[in-house]
Design a protein around this nucleic acid. Sequence first.
DNA 1: CCATTACCCTATCGTTTTTATAGATTTTAA
DNA 2: TTAAAATCTATAAAAACGATAGGGTAATGG
Lengths: 136, 136
Amino acid sequence: MLSKKTKYGLKALTYLASVDSKEPIQIAEIAKHENISQKFLESILLSLRRNGFLGSKKGKGGGYYLIKDPSEILMTTVMRVLEGPIAMVPCVSLNFYEKCDDCPDEHECSVHKLMLQVRDSALEVYRSNTLADLLE
Amino acid sequence: MLSKKTKYGLKALTYLASVDSKEPIQIAEIAKHENISQKFLESILLSLRRNGFLGSKKGKGGGYYLIKDPSEILMTTVMRVLEGPIAMVPCVSLNFYEKCDDCPDEHECSVHKLMLQVRDSALEVYRSNTLADLLE
DNA sequence: CCATTACCCTATCGTTTTTATAGATTTTAA
DNA sequence: TTAAAATCTATAAAAACGATAGGGTAATGG
């Protein structure tokens, strides 16, 4: 299951991209427009800022804004920041690899074999989609 | 993340297919061979039986056995029974559809759009793999 | 009858997710 | 300089879920 964090994060990014304004957009506006808990969204936007997707401005007239062009924001990086590993099992993860403690040999493991294919197919989707692609 | 239930279930199915015996295999043997908690495996095998993948025999010499040929066991059906929906979001699920309560219109939703592609790509993998394919 | 093994129900523990609460800090506008 | 508007920070509560254990019941074979 996709976490709400990721879902809300994607929606917020999409909204910011659709508004296409250089002016910062306030959290409250995004939350209202996307039916999201404002406080929850607050922490999501914060992590998106820390990871280089968003810029922010404090005080009156402040808010969040996209730092890069939507066509340069790949879904692979967004997903990894919001959702974590793209692989369904750590032993097939490119960026979050971890050995299974119950598996003596990965190369003999049927689960490994299947999940490798699933990872690759998901990766291809994320790689071929930017934020701009989700807009229209 | 893939749940351990699914992981263990797949491993158990693979083991039963690899043994290729008409004789029932005991839970304890599967659990030991795959390093799985026996009690947990118990409930997993039970649900696999209830869903038509396995047969069982009680008492001395009892155990579980495959009811169909491994080449006829599609990963789509296995995954749906063990893991649930293949889609990451209910609003793009074929077998477990549910409307999002925060989304006024699915067709306008960027998350929907992306997750539709992810679902289709995963589906293609699961459809093209049977239990027999995981064996070798 | 007795040992073995699957079946079934329930409780528990731990983790993660989601949301809520409360305030601190920074910036801007007047 | 002051007040308001907004982001930032920390905490924790609540809910959901995952994984596992315990103990008893039912069937089966010898």
